[in-house]
C-alpha cells in the first residue's frame, strides 16, 4: 500500500508499537498502514458515516465523534501520539483542541493549510476577495475552514501555550519539499506538518 506523501511523512514520525489516536481518521488509510507496518494500537475518531464503514471494513477501531466536543473519551496521557490531518482549521476552537490533544497524547502531529502562502496573499491583495484555490476550494460563506492561520500564527500559539515544536516539514500542495520552501516557509509553503509536545 502506498501512502499519500504527507501521510508518509507522518508515519515516519510514529514509533513502532506505539498507541495512536487519529482525529478525523477518514477512511483509515494512515491507521491501517500504522497497524500493518508498525503494529500500532490505534483508535480513529470520525464523523462521516461512509468513512466509518470504510474503517470498519479495514478492521480498525473507529469511534463516531465530533471533534468539536473535545476528546473526553480519552484520559490524560492515554496515547503516545495524537494525529490530526487537515482538520485544525475546521474546528470551533483550534486552541482548545490543541491543548486537549496534548492532554491525551505525549506528542501531537498536526497538518494544516498555510494562509500565508504567497498565492493566497496575492489573491486577496489583487482581487480583494477571500482566497480560493485547489487546497481552499470553498466560498467564504460555506467553507468548513473557519479558522485559517499561517505557519507564523500557529507557531505563535504554540509559544503562548508553552509547547515545543519537535519537527516541522513544510511542503507544496503535492506534498513535496524544496530548498526555497525551507528558506521562506511562511511565503512558499502550502501545507505544514508539525510535531509538537508539551
Amino acid at each position: 500500500m502506498t501512502l499519500r506523501s504527507d501521510l508518509n511523512i507522518i508515519q515516519s514520525w510514529v514509533s513502532p508499537e506505539s498507541q495512536v489516536l487519529d482525529l478525523g481518521c477518514g477512511q483509515g488509510d494512515l491507521l491501517s498502514f500504522l497497524k500493518q507496518h508498525k503494529k500500532c494500537k490505534s483508535y480513529g475518531l470520525e464523523i462521516n458515516p461512509d468513512s466509518i464503514v470504510s474503517c470498519v471494513e479495514k478492521g480498525l477501531n473507529v469511534i463516531e465523534h465530533d471533534l468539536n466536543d473535545g476528546l473526553q473519551h480519552f484520559k490524560n496521557g492515554s496515547v503516545d501520539t495524537v494525529i490530526m490531518t487537515q482538520a485544525l482549521q475546521a474546528v470551533d476552537r483550534p486552541d482548545l483542541l490543541l491543548e486537549d490533544m496534548l492532554r491525551v497524547g505525549k506528542e501531537a502531529i498536526i497538518t494544516f493549510p498555510n494562509f500565508g502562502y504567497w498565492r493566497t496573499r496575492l489573491f486577496l491583495m489583487l482581487k480583494g476577495k477571500m482566497p480560493m484555490s485547489k487546497t481552499l476550494p470553498f466560498n467564504w460563506y460555506d467553507t468548513p475552514n473557519i479558522h485559517m492561520c499561517t505557519f507564523q500564527d500557529f507557531e505563535k500559539l504554540c509559544r503562548e501555550k508553552g509547547l515545543h515544536i519537535l519537527d516541522r516539514t513544510v511542503v507544496n500542495k503535492d506534498h513535496q519539499e524544496s530548498l526555497a520552501i525551507r528558506t521562506w516557509p511562511n511565503l512558499l509553503g502550502e501545507i505544514a506538518i508539525y510535531r509538537v509536545s508539551r
Binding site: 483508535y43 458515516p49 469511534i63 463516531e64
Partner: peptide, 19 residues
C-alpha cells in the same frame, strides 16, 4: 452507550462505535 465506549477505550479494548 458512550459510557461503555469510554470504559472500553480506557481498558484498551478493541471497540467501534456508531451513533
Amino acid at each position: 452507550s458512550e459510557e461503555i465506549v469510554d470504559a472500553l477505550i480506557e481498558a484498551d479494548k478493541d471497540v467501534t462505535y456508531a451513533r
